[in-house]
Design a protein around this nucleic acid. Structure first.
Lengths: 109, 109
DNA sequence: ATCGAAGTTCGACCAACGTCGTAGTACGGT
DNA sequence: ACCGTACTACGACGTTGGTCGAACTTCGAT
């Protein structure tokens, strides 16, 4: 048995880089819960399981927020076992909107 | 009679730099109409009258959007005569969230 | 085969938001 | 003094969005 890389699971559908719209990204980042998720993911390049994110809300609400972030193109998620590991789409966002993510993350908590 | 600078009118109340919150800024930028306003103002450092902005919506809706942008700290407005001239708070935004505005403005129209 | 853990889906509810029309205010020009 | 222009304030309406609980699915482990 080998250690499976976080990128080794089944990827959930997500928008292509060319399909990411700035309005959707901004709307996704505007919510406090989702912004907290993004800040957390920014410090964990290898990804984090859904259950470890946004513990202040219920599981169903958590799912809703992660769906929103994924649909906007902010995060990508892979299913490994019973878990789903999410991580920031930093490369795509930096390529499309250089400075945006850094600017957001520079904001005081 | 001299040409009055756009900064010479009576300034409307706006949040201090220290009061600007990233969530409010992102929420303000997330709306298509307001994003259009910001893009327009980005190309006019000297400011633009309300009536020349967001012509796709009614005057009352326009006022609502400009109020939202001002309350979020994205724009500042001065009243000169019967007009109100709005301009981007570029310095403040760049100081608080370096790269954010540039990233947003880099997005394709 | 069964159980538990991890997420999802569905439906409901309430708050917040974008939109408008109408009425109102404030200022400049005639 | 009057009028028109520029913008605002208010109230209404429909839509969207965040929240939850309950029921369901899927997978790994025992």
């Amino acid at each position: 048995m080998w250690l499976m890389a976080p990128t080794g699971g089944t990827p959930l559908p997500q928008p292509d880089r060319s399909e990411i719209r700035i309005e959707a990204v901004l709307a996704a980042l505007a919510d406090p819960v989702r912004l907290d998720v993004v800040r957390t993911l920014a410090g964990a390049p290898s990804g984090i399981a859904c259950g470890e994110l946004a513990r202040t809300v219920s599981p169903s609400t958590r799912t809703h927020h992660l769906n929103t972030l994924r649909a906007a193109g902010v995060i990508s998620t892979v299913a490994v076992g019973t878990r789903k590991i999410s991580s920031l789409r930093r490369e795509d966002l930096d390529a499309l909107f250089p400075g945006l993510l850094d600017g957001v993350l520079a904001a005081p908590r």
